[in-house]
Amino acid sequence: MEVTDPVASEPAAARRRPAVVAALLLGIAALALWASSRMTWVTAYSSDGLGEDRTLTLDGGTWAASLTPLALVLVAAVAAAFAVRGWALRIVAAAVAAVGIVAAVPAVGLLSGGADPEDAARIADLPARATVTATDIAYGPAVLTLAGAVAALAAAVVLWRTPRSQAGLSSKYDSPAARRDAAARRGEGDERVTERALWDALDAGEDPTLDADPAPDASGNPPGDTEGDDDSGTRR
């Protein structure tokens, strides 16, 4: 009797749903961080005492230089959400959560404490004789960064809670040996195999029927064993 593989019988869409949700959240987070890195966060006004005051615009990639690399990490995590499983997926989830926290730090600092003139002068790489006399901050990019950080944290939660059976690529991409091992673990030593396992064994050049013990005949001997009988059919 054929044994139904519970993982294989589960709809493919249901198995991929957590990875798809996580990928969407990661994509939103990466897009938010990348967009905010291109927007102006701080406008600084400086004076060097020699000429007219200067107006400097500092975008997110300058004020918070980590935004672009963090966005790239989230893009890489999209592929990892579909490719890994088990503890590897937990590591990816932890990394994504760390990215969300790191991305939120400069936005929270800017929204809560404003832009420090000394920080603005240092980030703008002004000469020593120049000083920043005033700063204006843009709240929109910082809020967008926080939204991206929240999306990254939500993706981390989804990845962390993804069941092992629903993580990674479909089992059809596994090697035949890996699928047989997984089937054996799920069957807890049951010697019955699925039709798919039989085909995997044939693909590997193995004869799946060799593992089965042949049924004895009426006299108690294995089929083909005639050593115990003489030509007349009686025992020696």
Rank of each mutant, 00 (worst) to 15 (best):
Ala156Glu: 05
Ala14Phe: 05
Arg236Ser: 13
Pro127Ala: 12
Arg235Met: 13
Leu50Trp: 12
Val150Met: 06
Asp203Ser: 12
Ala215Lys: 09
Asp211Pro: 02
Ser36Tyr: 02
Ala19Leu: 01
Val150Leu: 14
Gln166Thr: 07
Ser66His: 08
Arg15His: 09
Ser46Trp: 03
Pro141Cys: 08
Ala124Thr: 03
Ala35Pro: 01
Arg164Asp: 15
Val158Gly: 00
Ala65Arg: 11
Ala77Asn: 03
Ala134Asn: 08
Asp136Ala: 11
Ser232Gln: 13
Ser66Leu: 12
Gly113Phe: 08
Ala35Arg: 08
Ala184Gln: 08
Ala32Gln: 09
Thr68Ile: 10
Ile137Trp: 05
Tyr139Glu: 15
Glu2Cys: 08
Arg236Pro: 14
Leu56Phe: 00
Arg192Cys: 04
Arg54Glu: 14
Thr135Arg: 00
Ser175Cys: 04
Ala93Thr: 03
Leu58Gly: 01
Arg38Ile: 02
Gly49Leu: 12
Gly205Cys: 10
Ser165Gly: 11
Leu153Gly: 12
Ala204Leu: 15
Ala184Cys: 03
Trp160Phe: 13
Leu126Pro: 03
Ala215Asn: 09
Trp160Lys: 04
Ala93Ser: 12
Arg196Phe: 09
Ala130Thr: 09
Ile137Gly: 07
Arg38Asp: 10
Arg16Trp: 00
Val20Pro: 04
Ala134Val: 02
Asp59Glu: 10
Ile123Met: 09
Pro6Arg: 05
Val132Phe: 02
Ala44Phe: 02
Val73Gly: 12
Arg164Gly: 13
Ala167Trp: 04
Thr162Ile: 07
Ala76Asn: 10
Val193Gly: 09
Leu74Ala: 08
Leu58Met: 06
Ser47Met: 01
Ala14His: 01
Asp207Gly: 06
Ser219Val: 12
Thr135Ala: 02
Arg54Cys: 03
Glu118Arg: 07
Arg236Lys: 13
Thr234Pro: 00
Ala128Asn: 08
Arg192Ala: 14
Lys172Arg: 14
Arg186Asn: 10
Ser232His: 11
Val75Ser: 09
Ala65Val: 11
Leu169Ile: 12
Leu144Phe: 02
Leu159Met: 09
Asn221Lys: 13
Ala44Arg: 01
Gly148Lys: 00
Ala13Cys: 01
Val158Lys: 01
Ala167Phe: 05
Arg16Gln: 14
Gly113Met: 06
Asp174Asn: 15
Ser112Glu: 13
Ala134Tyr: 07
Val102Phe: 08
Ala177Glu: 15
Val150Thr: 10
Pro6Ile: 07
